[in-house]
Design a protein around this nucleic acid. Structure first.
Lengths: 221, 221, 221, 221
DNA sequence: TATGAATGAGTTTTCATTCAT
DNA sequence: CATGAATGAAAACTCATTCAT
């Protein structure tokens, strides 16, 4: 199954990232300008001419590289989707299952730290994703499949494992997953997109968040 | 201060809801059609001609009632903002401060139940709000003020109260608020907008969520 | 011929002024508002809704009194055309022909004084006429006929008379008329519409203008 | 001061004419069509779609070259304003001050001839200018400044010069200027815009007009 | 490959006019 | 008579996309 997953990951990366390596300088400028403008005004309200202007290229140049405006959006949004989900399929992830309870905390702290940095580094693109996902049914479909099929399943097994060990409370795994994801996503979005200007001590905040999360779902004595 | 707050609430309701009662039949149809289409394709991608068509009125009729397309958006989104925040200013809210710890749980369950129903009833408008808020700086500003000035302050005082009583853990109130809001908002959005199709037993889910939330932030023995 | 002219004048007045007496208060307000707005922004750029607003009546009310926006224009512009030309047909005018040279000057001073006051009193309407005449072929036609047939002919006979008497220079009457009209119209427009803010001593200015005009076209010794 | 004036002229020409040389074929067609239609029905009543149609281009093409309909108007009207006033700043003009009285007549005949030809060649644009000037406050402001500051001052000095020499009558220079300008403008407009269909012998008409003008304002013996 | 002028369908908005109340 | 909501045709303007250079 590992191979299977890796294969899928490979495919996904290839498909979603597109020809990631062969980007000319102009293409990069276009992507950069489009990312900025899409995140500032939203996909629909952004005009290709403004993008061309900010990128310093002719309007026609955009359409030489991206057949349509929508293609341009996908070429920005696609890779991020892959990169967002990819870590969950890393081999290391699998190993966690065999670790004692305390290491779970460390693992989640690592994940949270990693996702927080990732979200900050890609704040603009994330905004685009959040804004446009609801209106791009295909993408949305992919994402839903991705999550329900892989993320949920994986985390589900993780929690089942710990429930068996009596380390976390008994509850339908869906609830626990929802709560955990909500907590982590809520923390990441708050400090990357909603209120990035609030200064925090990352380590402290991460530790506290995971600590509270773990206490919440801990086995009740 | 209660009067003061009530006054503010009154003002807000009057200002944001507009003349809510004097809506003609055509106006209602327009609002309804616009709400649907805005939530389906986003504000920018929605065309007034499509709205007119679905509302069964002439395009000119829209502009007789709403000077611009943006006015139409605001007349949909404005009232919801008021209604979203209003409950937090209800008199009952104040009383909670005097209650013993256990009643806090009940209160929060009530809030969560209420907000969940509200979100489900207004799912389409909520989607519009979430999508458009980032691109409507004025609205965003209002909302930020609203939250930082009223919501945060209120909840902050609430938690300070319980921290003094030794019922919840010591921590900067911002963190506790973030965690609580994240938990409640996450639960509401999950079951109203993200995955409304998943069937849940509301009472059970609410109870569980608040229970876990409370355990997470409880005073550590 | 006098009767003939008087008849024509009568007709013209009736036709152009419309039912001048039966104006309701609302009609007056409409005319007033329309006059202001037409003269401020031009006929085409003025909107009936703005007129209704400034007149303090409902939009529909305008169209109850004037079938179309154009009718409204004509009901403003028509009367002025009549009043502009009418004086030229007054009986007094005829008498001038029999007067000695010096009285001609007095007569022209009277005309100039009268037209100047008239233009000042009706500056707004005059502006409308000047602006719209070129685009209203029918009106323009009427006016051209009016002038070529009556004004020119009358003044032509006047000058012929004085040329015979050797009081003014020999020249095609068209030239003399053009020069005289140009001088008088130029003076009137300058001080009523173009530069009304410049303060002048009317009598002095009128005397000087006619004096110079007469010297210019006087019989060369 | 000559340099100063020349400088100003240079600036004015550059500013008002815009990049006159770099006009594509389509731009020329657009300008041509717009000029015709503006002069036929007035700026406000002219529609961009009709202009596009007559120019044989797509409507969008107009807006690629001129950001707004108003820009199109200004790009037609601006240059003419410059060209109308420019001649008055020519070096030759200055020399006239040193010439004997008779040459003044020649000079004015030259000016009148030149302006008459210019007006005929640009009759359509002139019509537009006359019609729209009152509704374009900025343009109107520029023109007023232009005239009061440059034209009036120049001609004023000219007449002061001849008054000192005892060649023309004593009178406030404003009056003499008003009369002269009125005479020349009246003659030009009559034969270029008002009644262009009337055939005249230009030289004869010009000579006669200047002759009469000069006699009118000559020193009274 | 890059350009940018040209396109035309589509957008938001205006407006003279009608008509039920 | 007066109103003002409703209309729909037309207005100014935008924009993704194409294509000759």
């Amino acid at each position: 199954m590992a191979e299977n997953t890796e294969q899928w990951l490979e495919d996904m990366l290839l498909l979603m990232e597109g020809n990631d390596g062969k980007k000319t300088e102009k293409q990069l400028k276009i992507i950069q300008a489009a990312t900025e403008i899409f995140s500032e005004k939203g996909y629909s309200a952004a005009s290709t001419s403004e993008i061309a202007q900010r990128a310093g290229v002719a309007e026609g140049t955009i359409f030489r590289h991206y057949k349509t405006k929508r293609d341009l959006l996908l070429s920005i949004v696609g890779p991020i989707l892959a990169k967002t989900v990819a870590p969950l399929f890393m081999r290391d992830f699998a190993k966690v299952l065999d670790q004692p309870y305390t290491e779970i905390e460390d693992f989640y702290k690592t994940v949270l730290r990693d996702r927080l940095n990732f979200a900050r580094k890609n704040a603009k693109i994330l905004r685009i994703v959040i804004q446009e996902l609801p209106f791009q049914p295909e993408l949305l479909g992919q994402v839903k499949v991705l999550f329900s099929q892989y993320v949920f399943e994986r985390i589900g097994r993780l929690y089942a494992h710990f429930q068996e060990q009596g380390q976390i409370m008994e509850a339908p795994s869906f609830r626990i997953i929802r709560f955990s994801v909500t907590t982590i996503v809520g923390m990441v979005l708050t400090h990357s997109i909603l209120l990035p200007e609030i200064p925090i001590d990352d380590e402290e905040e991460i530790n506290w968040t995971i600590d509270v999360l773990m206490h919440g779902i801990a086995k009740r004595s």
